[in-house]
Write a protein that binds this DNA or RNA. Sequence first.
DNA 1: AATAAACGATTACAAATGTAAACTATGGTT
DNA 2: AACCATAGTTTACATTTGTAATCGTTTATT
Lengths: 152, 152
Amino acid sequence: MAVEEKVEITDAEWEIMRVVWTLEQATSKEIIEVLQEKKDWKPATTKTFIGRLVKKGILLAEPQGNKFIYSAGISEEGSVKSATDRLFGQICSRAAGKTIADMISKALLSHEDIRLLQSALDAKKDEAVDTVPCNCIPGQCKCKKDHNINCY
Amino acid sequence: MAVEEKVEITDAEWEIMRVVWTLEQATSKEIIEVLQEKKDWKPATTKTFIGRLVKKGILLAEPQGNKFIYSAGISEEGSVKSATDRLFGQICSRAAGKTIADMISKALLSHEDIRLLQSALDAKKDEAVDTVPCNCIPGQCKCKKDHNINCY
DNA sequence: AATAAACGATTACAAATGTAAACTATGGTT
DNA sequence: AACCATAGTTTACATTTGTAATCGTTTATT
């Protein structure tokens, strides 16, 4: 697998990427137009972000005459995965389950989503462990205090 | 409910907060000690983050003689929730289910977690909808293209 | 009492981020 | 041919974030 996906995408840049992931091929004009609906950005601002993304190699610029056709240099799936990894990296590994459960409780889901989630969950039933090891350093989670298991 | 929870916590600040959420009451010395295990920060660096957190009102400083006893001004649960909200705010509402399913697939879960997730999922079965409405602006998701439903 | 250790406050400074104007080149319009 | 709209590039600048040294006090030590 490629190395990629180690790049940091800022909030503003993420907005640009979503447009490119969606359109797959887009001119700066199109990106600017799409975002006008959502962000109160001047065209110049969007241009700046496009430029930075290209510099970072996250956005590919294919010369089209004197203009460029932009396309994504990283996948949306991979990027979303990076974002979720980052989130779970901020909490105790033992809290992941509860956190995901909270997400489910809060989300608006379709029957299809329920099926999908049920499948994922069923698949996990086999490989479920008795105790998820805590990955925190002492003093950054309450595993010991709450469960008297590992940590510390 | 209080207004709070609208504050932004940076990565570095999050490290401090985790210590305080865990210890509940901590001196700067304790915070510095805990983090020495994880971050390559000089004591002065940790102090800077503590100061910024106090200024933001995220960290409470109770005078203890000439020192301070620090405690959290916002809850860990609420903060994690904010973080997940932020994540889901970056993707199409229709993709939430799949994203959560991916998290389940990737996570290491305990039998207890499985039960918790199953409960959350069961609870959702009632209120599941046929189609989750897309919350994206035209050009930022492929709902139309992929499912021919809303968007655009 | 003199000093050293500890703690919080102040100051510093580079890099990242958000936001945008100005400049340049080029192709389309009159 | 002259001019303007458009796209990309360069420059600008304030704020935030990461990282830390220094300074001023105060408390503990000798």
